[in-house]
């Protein structure tokens, strides 16, 4: 199968911090790939580069045959005008364009539209696929009504698909955390993607919610959508992923099947420390702590 997403030697630097340092991997159509690594390894930064939110320092990202990172001619580099030109939209691709090409994403810390209802949140994602013009909206033409109806129907379809059964007119801030996560995935699916990037979708979910998330991701894959997920929960990763990419300090330290990864000494070293068994315990405790923290927060938020 051909590669849907090809990342080659991606680098991103913030001042002195090399957030991503030479990352290369590819995603084939319809596969589930997991990206793992300790906190601060640069996973989210890599996602942001791939979805064009950050402009990488160097490297290339090709999605579905289209270049997401554009090279500016030498002369602009030399005149130091690249950033200015990029801020005007030259030599760069906007994230919205990448989404139209068929790449959708979710965010590590939920970013739903807080003053919109559940249904409107999902409808918003259908922006690019809706035939509605300025005049037809003003005049409420039959075409407009049909588009709105189709949009609502499609949005409901996605809400049902992710298993959201609550009231669609609720404001998203009133949903429990787990439901908000679901809505966010429905929203991403409504952009009708070929590739879905999930940034820690299981963070803050309880056991049952994690199980249904696993089901959901399998269902998404069954639609033919490739999924890349960043996740700290190794249980979930092992159950879902066909391939795993491991990052540490921005560098890719391993790439392979779950079996290969679990037995890779470099990965074990990165995760558990070199010799000391206590580290493993510490890591585990850290993990549950941060999860508990997230749960707390979601509780207070909803």
């Amino acid at each position: 199968m051909s590669a849907l997403l090809e990342v080659t030697d991606l680098r991103l630097q913030f001042g002195g911090v090399k957030a991503v340092d030479g990352l290369s991997f590819e995603v084939r159509e319809g596969e589930i790939l997991a990206v793992i690594g300790p906190n601060g390894a640069g996973k989210t930064s890599a996602f942001n580069c791939i979805s064009a939110f950050y402009l990488p320092t160097s490297g290339s990202v090709v999605f579905d045959g289209k270049h997401i990172v554009r090279e500016a001619p030498r002369i602009w580099h030399r005149l130091r005008l690249v950033q200015l030109l990029q801020s005007f939209g030259f030599y760069r691709v906007l994230p919205s364009r990448v989404t139209k090409w068929g790449m959708a994403r979710t965010f590590q810390n939920l970013r739903l539209f807080r003053e919109l209802s559940v249904l409107d949140n999902v409808k918003t994602a259908m922006h690019a696929n809706l035939r509605e013009g300025f005049w037809s909206t003003l005049l409420h033409t039959p075409g407009y009504r049909r588009a709105e109806e189709a949009c609502a129907r499609e949005a409901r379809g996605w809400l049902d698909f992710v298993g959201y059964e609550g009231d669609e007119h609720l404001y998203v801030t009133h949903l429990p955390y787990g439901e908000q996560r679901r809505v966010e995935i429905a929203r991403a699916l409504a952009t009708s993607p070929k590739l879905l990037l999930l940034d820690e979708p299981a963070a803050g979910l309880n056991y049952n919610e994690k199980q249904s998330l696993i089901e959901l991701i399998r269902k998404i894959r069954a639609l033919g959508v490739a999924v890349v997920l960043i996740e700290h929960d190794m249980g979930l990763v092992m159950k879902l992923a066909e391939r795993i990419v491991v990052l540490n300090y921005g560098k890719e330290i391993a790439d392979g099947t779950p079996e290969q990864i679990t037995s890779d000494p470099v990965v074990i070293e990165a995760y558990l420390g070199v010799d000391d068994e206590d580290h493993a315990v510490d890591e585990a405790r850290l993990r549950t702590d941060s999860d508990a923290q997230l749960n707390d927060e979601s509780g207070s938020r909803s």
Binding site: F14, N48, F53, Y54, Q83, L84, S87, F107
Partner: peptide, 16 residues
């Protein structure tokens, strides 16, 4: 328009 960071301001990437 052309130099929103000003003469001495540092360019910062806004965190997402």
């Amino acid at each position: 328009t052309f130099k929103p960071t000003g003469l001495l301001g540092a360019r910062v990437v806004e965190r997402m």
